[in-house]
Design a protein around this nucleic acid. Sequence first.
DNA 1: TTGAAAGCGATACCAA
DNA 2: TTGGTATCGCTTTCAA
Lengths: 351, 351
Amino acid sequence: MARTRNHPREGGTRRRGGSSRAGDAVTLEEVARLAGVSTITVSRALNQPDKVAAGTLEKVNRAISQTGYVPNLLAGGLASKKTRMVAAIVPSIANLVYAETMQYFSKRLNEFGYQVMLGESGYPERSEQSLLSAILSRRPDGILLTGVNHSPECRRLLIGARIPVVETWDLTPTPLDLVVGFSHERIGLEVADFIAARGYRRVGTISASDRRAQYREKIMLERLQRHGVTETYRVQIPVPSDMRKGRDGLAELLQRGLGTGVVFCSSDTLAQGALTECLARGLKVPEQIAIIGFGDQSFAADTFPALSTVRIDRPRMGRVAADALLARIDGRPLEEHVIDVGFQIIERGTT
Amino acid sequence: MARTRNHPREGGTRRRGGSSRAGDAVTLEEVARLAGVSTITVSRALNQPDKVAAGTLEKVNRAISQTGYVPNLLAGGLASKKTRMVAAIVPSIANLVYAETMQYFSKRLNEFGYQVMLGESGYPERSEQSLLSAILSRRPDGILLTGVNHSPECRRLLIGARIPVVETWDLTPTPLDLVVGFSHERIGLEVADFIAARGYRRVGTISASDRRAQYREKIMLERLQRHGVTETYRVQIPVPSDMRKGRDGLAELLQRGLGTGVVFCSSDTLAQGALTECLARGLKVPEQIAIIGFGDQSFAADTFPALSTVRIDRPRMGRVAADALLARIDGRPLEEHVIDVGFQIIERGTT
DNA sequence: TTGAAAGCGATACCAA
DNA sequence: TTGGTATCGCTTTCAA
């Protein structure tokens, strides 16, 4: 069943003449014609310039700048099955911890000629599955996810896509592919130990209604109990977190009876709000109330020298995630598929 | 010069059997075969379901879910010259004012089936032109820019791309295509009038080394001079802004001799830092020092009730920019190509 | 309502 | 080092 095609284009351009739309862009073919070479040579001049003779290269480059040629990566990606694009799904870009991580992630990928397509999963009205499907239809070469809990449909889609996947902001012994993150359980345990070791007997928490935040809190409270610390006060706040909610949270803890002690907040944003409330009330931090945040937002520590926090090295997490993905995309071997970037409890204001 | 092609694929699948890579994804053709229809019918079932008979539609949908088909938008975009994607270039996504604007912009576009590809222009080591070129090679259906100042090369690229362009965060009578923003000049003037009207005689500024921030400050100081307010103190800080820089900025203003008065900051982030410094020093705001920010970040006002600010309705700017772009993409007529979303000076803590 | 054929603009593969 | 030809997976155009 061989079919026959005849090509109507007999050389020469054939502009339709009408108002020029997006489609009228210069093509490889036009550049090639102008340079007096074949299209594939122009393609090589762009992608593997060392495989093209110097003189040819020059002719081609001249033709490119004369025409103002901008490659069409849709066509290129279709033909080569490489889009030089990776996708990333984060809960919210208006949340500094994710935005900063993405900044480092993108920066690294940009250096290698990749672009990042960002998706936000934080909208309950849009299923994560439909987001993922929309993203996969652009055929990214790899994808970054936030967290390690995904619906069965999402897992199916990801597996079907047959591209490298890196999960972040958490750990699991059974990643879809790669995971670059840290253990929320260990954070809960270590923060509890930290608190107990300093002799605090009264502990408050201000936690966002976020899965991982809730988990850290739960683990911490359980461990505290084992340490014999039982006077605890909990405030839960709806996402998105902001400083006001941190202020209000602290006010509520005080009103409920937390006099002096320590407060563990699920983000630095909340912690800064709590600290602001202390400042406004003239409470000494950490002497009267100690505040522990989470995330170590770059500005938080500097702004509030008394703010202790659980430091997550987000720049590193972003870069490591990018590197891991790049390695997988290039088919390079990886030492580890589970990468723990760890965390660090930073105590401030003790002097 | 008609050429002949023979198609080696004689029906039936021909998996290469090796380790399956991204390219092995299910195609329209496989879905069509399974459903017993032609590829174009499957395509219609997805894009114009009302033009397909109910029974056929059902068969197709069954085949789609059986195979786990995910459309290839590279191929679709190449064929139709519509990518259902728009690009946006912002200085930094780790800056809440831009991130929030983008959130609303994306949300709106998502509702219409478009995705947003984000680019960051804030890296001096990468020319804006190369960023733009990389973005345009993905053939977005439209593009959002931040600001109205673009290099000649960028203008050329944008014009050559022949797609709708919306400039934001500023105004100009001669936009590339569309502009949705507000006047920094008018802000400078009105803030100066506001300050003069309240009788402040001593004025400090804390401004980021950002083109638009500098312009607002310059206009404001000139106008203040005309009002006879000449005792001014200026602090300039390098981007990116953070609260610490705001704290330090205020400390420096005080040290330089600004006793009581008002301080105009180029962003709410800086203003919050300045306010924190006041809190820490026990200075009453606004009685001793009044603070005026810029941007009206959602959390800022609530966290610091004494913080006055220049409100920019970012949600609206994002939505309006999206709507304008959508209209242009669909070829719908637009009432205005220059849209001023305005601003509002919010005075707080006066009671 | 459905389909056949011809591209869209690039790259892969194999020759020259 | 350069080029011819056949795709990549989809949509458009025109017919049936």
